[in-house]
């Protein structure tokens, strides 16, 4: 069960969000101030942090938590104007959401963050006819259990898609995340690698269903 450390001073919002997240299967520790947050950080998989807090403000608390435990993702939740908060918050926070927020969006962002930080804990991902274990990582065909052998780059591309589920990612984003170098204009590398990847994982590479092409923008893997 995923453990969420939730820091929110508003009682109404706090109580309601805690309930909503618990219904979604999270285990929530709710604090009304950031003063004791550091004591709970080791028992958390993810932190939801409000900016305006009594005592220490959210930015200070967040920076402190990030220093203690850099591997725990932090999502900032702010009711202030987004201009400065966003820039200041994203210096240490991993995502940022403005109030009023939609509970489904909050849950979705938590899932994305957890996956990005690999804190989901041994969950296998089912993608069409494939089963993917991101921890090993291996890709197997559901029915036969036959392993699909991918090159290192192909696997990295696939894992990048899985870290950004349902999001459209551009070829520049893929290139820079996988190759770790700035994208050069006109580079076809990503295109070529995606074609080979499709040949291995798609049932019909000419009509792909797993990696979707969004013409003019990039690619998307839906889950």
């Amino acid at each position: 069960m995923t453990r969420v450390l939730y820091i929110e001073d508003d009682l109404e919002i706090g109580r309601w969000t805690k309930e909503d997240l618990e219904q979604r299967g999270f285990q929530v520790t709710w604090l009304t101030s950031g003063d004791e947050a550091a004591a709970h950080i080791r028992e958390a998989d993810i932190v939801i942090l409000d900016v305006m807090l009594p005592g220490l403000d959210g930015f200070t608390v967040g920076q402190r938590l990030k220093r203690e435990e850099p591997q725990v993702p932090i999502l900032m939740l702010s009711a202030r104007t987004s201009v400065d908060d966003k820039l200041q918050g994203l210096q240490f926070a991993d995502d940022y959401l403005t109030k009023p927020f939609h509970p489904e969006e909050l849950a979705a962002r938590l899932m994305v963050l957890l996956r990005r930080f690999g804190r989901e804990g041994g969950q296998e991902i089912v993608l069409g006819h494939l089963r993917i274990d991101p921890d090993k990582p291996t890709v197997t065909v559901t029915g036969s259990g036959e392993e699909v052998l991918l090159t290192a780059k192909q696997l990295q591309i696939l894992l990048y898609f899985l870290k950004h589920p349902n999001q459209i990612v551009t070829k520049e984003q893929i290139y820079e995340a996988v190759w770790g170098e700035p994208f050069m204009e006109g580079d076809k590398t990503v295109l070529v690698h995606i074609r080979y990847l499709r040949e291995k994982i798609e049932l019909d590479p000419s009509a792909p269903t797993i990696i979707e092409t969004i013409r003019g923008l990039g690619y998307r893997v839906k889950q």
């Binding site: 508003d10 109404e12 009711a79 104007t81 908060d85 403005t98 109030k99 009023p100 939609h102 509970p103």
Partner: peptide
């Protein structure tokens, strides 16, 4: 002024968040 705007924004959004949450419930 910045602080005022931040506070006003906070004070307006907080009840709005509650309303939205309860509407969702």
């Amino acid at each position: 002024r910045r602080e005022l705007i931040a506070k006003l924004s906070h004070d307006l959004r907080t009840p709005l968040t509650t309303i939205r949450g309860h509407a969702y419930s």
